[in-house]
Design a binder for these strands. Structure first.
Lengths: 199, 199
DNA sequence: TCGCCTAAACCGTCCGTTCCGTTCTATTTT
DNA sequence: AAAATAGAACGGAACGGACGGTTTAGGCGA
């Protein structure tokens, strides 16, 4: 070492990569822990134990417990379905992945606890709202703008109000009532929104 | 504590009955703690310290931390306003107390954290949903039944769907977006609901 | 005497961090 | 090409401080 000069030049040393298997085991354990213990009784120690991982590994890759929980839940959310023709179906497709997640296995518990984490932890909340912006708000705005251009709906729609009407009911069922999501719930909310915006 | 007089709200105990002053001090401390630390970092020790109360007293009167937090928040919710003539105003009056609570002082933080407690703690959730049943569901069903009888709205309305549409948006603003509630938000949701049910 | 109260102590758990020894990879040296 | 080296990530264990829930002790008023 102690050689001249080239120290300023970055001598690239990549080294070992992040262990994907460890990450997967951790996220699995987080989902299990969330579904069993919820948010307040969520235990990092339990996660490390169940995943046979070191807590150091967890704290190295996630800045807070909340973001860890949010990551574990969002990785359950599938992609939005394609090929919707109807206007209502296109809008429903935006929130269909959330509905599907809430209806699949322990998704109801995992998603609820993760949303609690996002509401209770600042950094997780920031990440969650960013996700909403790109996955919900952006596509919804595109669809509504197109429908407005075609004069299918009024031109004075407000994107925030539209989001309220579209996803609010889902939170009520999932967070407040702890009730299962009825079949085709997304489509009904989409139709409701469309009806309120009809020209 | 040689200090006497106006500083201390504590009055002398009246005997082997529940101390109202202690209860009030505890609930005040709970609200402060909820607004500062949220739900997961809520500390009973801090509450006891701030209220100059014993933890034993807290655990004697509340079955769980969640119900304690819920009590503290619900005691902030005012009564429903009277004297609404309009159908929309009558419906809006049902959720107006929640909107008012979320807009007053630290009510936003307190109410949010308490709702997290209700979603995360089973006994608190049960209590919370009971409150919703009598304070929201029951009056809403009465109003809608009356409007249906007058043929103002359709006859095939579903009470659960109506609740979804009426309060869901509020949860979205309060729990998900952490955003302030706009002016006359309740009235707009009521009008939205009425429009979707119009005959 | 009885019941409610505050205060303090207690044990188990959790969090976040810090060590240790090992394993793995990219680079350097032989 | 083969071996040695340096750095990074890993599992495991431990730590101090804090918290939860319970128990004990002592004070006070009906």
């Amino acid at each position: 070492m102690a050689e001249s000069g080239t120290k300023s030049k970055r001598q690239r040393r990549e080294g070992p990569k992040r262990s994907e298997s460890s990450q997967a085991a951790i996220l699995d354990a987080v989902r299990l822990e969330l579904s069993e213990n919820g948010w307040r009784n969520f235990s990092v120690d339990n996660v490390a134990r169940r995943a046979s991982a070191s807590k150091q590994t967890i704290y190295r890759w996630w800045p807070s417990i909340g973001t860890l929980c949010l990551d574990a839940a969002l990785s359950l959310v599938p992609a939005q379905p394609e090929g919707a023709r109807d206007a209502a179906q296109r809008i429903a497709a935006i929130i269909a992945p959330l509905e599907a997640t809430a209806r699949t296995g322990d998704g109801n518990y995992v998603l609820r606890a993760a949303l609690l984490a996002a509401a209770d932890d600042d950094s997780a909340g920031e990440k969650w709202r960013t996700w909403l912006k790109t996955e919900i708000r952006l596509p919804l705005r595109n669809v509504l703008a197109e429908l407005a251009a075609k004069q299918v709906i009024r031109r004075d729609w407000d994107i925030e109000d539209a989001i309220d009407a579209l996803v609010g009911p889902l939170w009520h069922r999932l967070l407040i009532m702890h009730s299962p999501i009825p079949e085709a719930y997304s489509l009904r909310q989409a139709e409701n929104l469309l009806a309120s915006l009809r020209a």
